[in-house]
Design a binder for these strands. Structure first.
Lengths: 255, 255
DNA sequence: TTTTGTCCCTTTGTCCGACAAAGTTAAAGC
DNA sequence: GCTTTAACTTTGTCGGACAAAGGGACAAAA
């Protein structure tokens, strides 16, 4: 028969973890602000009273979590985690879980429709200017599938940004990162793929500009359906998406 | 005046990063499967021909990314990244970006509605059994806000699981993790909060069981609106959500 | 005045060797 | 056969070391 609990579990995390936790706490509760320097490794050695190897392991943890980074001169400072970096962890996880194309498509439909609805409602002139600029660049590379795919990815990021909802922005990113590499394949494989894509973007920008929600949703749906039809030509919907990641990971490494 | 760029930056990743990349590649492309042992640090020292400190820094990177973990005996093995762990990185990021309650609420509305739609369409008997079980446990703790909040969080995870869409499951998680701690406050602060919450869950399970999409969407909306009304009593919608994270992070540490 | 070369100091990335604590394995004892 | 004990292994941490690269200051050159 278990005795009544008298003691709480002791915190027995390894030292490098405690170092990481301590710095994380200072950043999250705002005592260290994004951009603030963290100090040199030697400083941290002195402050925490542990070995430099231990400090360095703690730094790796925070760096991977996107809370701190090294600037050009390799000095440490706090920073706001970048969505795209965090999202790439998630994309990787989705690949490892062998999600199917259907899952990806359905979720993206939901998320992109929500994005456009938000954008129609709340886009600013600045947002529209960015979208217009993207459209011009897209038109210029309509014959170059790789570049066009890049513009397409950026376009949808801009739409999400125009929705003024960062939770949504972040939620759609992992799926979008998996989409992106296949766009290129589809633009290549489908006749009139490029022009159709650019035309859809134009309609979407119009919908945002004139705050026409119906049109926005309609063209988002069409845009994604086009993309799906392109995909169906090269694979089945139940197929998992592992090859998408391979392309994406390579691109990320080149960056 | 800057000259036109002639050379691309050379790839000079530090050794610990290369170690991490190499192991990640083997895991992602499937040569190392989830559960497979990675070998001891000494093994890796031999294989990569670098110092153990370097290996350990690489391990921290992978560990933080959720690709490898140490089992009870601290041996390294590959594993499938856990959504909830990755999502907590994102929650943290959302807090640091100081997202407002409005952003969180809107995105959650979208994601939870999509979840229930998927669940209504595709839930299995197993999913329903899990939901029923959750309901029973919720009813048992309806007077205990902390436990009830825990059950509520689990309930929505189960609904998302029933949608059979892992992309959606993952996309909703970061927002849900921020929701969770406030549920407790709301159940405490709002009269009849607990019973209303359980009643909504009951309706949602019915909707899933009888594949009644309308009812599912309706009750999800109501459920979230209830939650929002509770929140409005204690703060404004434009308020950012930092306090939610503090609670959540503490809970995570206790785990 | 702006660029280039040089010197010095700091910081990072990496290496080596070491050791206590905790876990594992295998032998010894009942 | 089961438990205890005694090696052995592995991890977490430590101390010190060194080369390479960055930053700053300053003088020489264009």
């Amino acid at each position: 028969m278990p005795v009544a609990p008298l003691f709480r579990p002791i915190d027995v995390a390894p030292a490098y973890q405690k170092v990481a936790d301590a710095i994380e706490r200072e950043i999250v509760n705002g005592r260290i602000k994004p951009g603030d320097p963290i100090g040199t490794e030697h400083d941290l050695v002195r402050q925490f009273g542990v070995n430099r190897s231990t400090i360095r392991e703690g730094i790796r943890v925070l760096e991977e979590g996107g809370l701190i980074r090294r600037d050009s001169s390799r000095r440490l400072h706090a920073c706001l985690p970048r969505y795209s970096k965090l999202a790439s962890r998630l994309s990787r996880a989705l690949v490892l879980h062998e999600v199917t194309f259907r899952e990806l498509y359905e979720a993206s439909m939901t998320l992109e429709v929500a994005s456009i609805e938000g954008a129609v409602e709340r886009a600013t002139d600045d947002n529209l200017a960015e979208l217009d600029d993207n459209l011009v660049r897209s038109e210029a590379v309509v014959g170059d599938p790789a570049r066009l795919a890049e513009c397409d990815a950026e376009f949808h990021v801009l739409v999400a940004k125009a929705s003024q909802n960062r939770v949504l922005q972040l939620a759609r990113e992992p799926a979008a990162q998996l989409f992106y590499p296949t766009t290129e394949m589809i633009v290549t494989g489908v006749a009139e793929g490029g022009p159709r894509l650019v035309a859809a973007h134009r309609h979407l920008i119009d919908a945002i500009r004139y705050r026409d929600r119906e049109a926005g949703v309609l063209w988002t749906r069409r845009h994604l359906q086009d993309w799906r039809r392109g995909f169906e030509k090269i694979a089945s919907l139940d197929r998992s998406v592992e090859h998408m990641y391979m392309e994406h990971a390579q691109a990320a490494r080149r960056r």
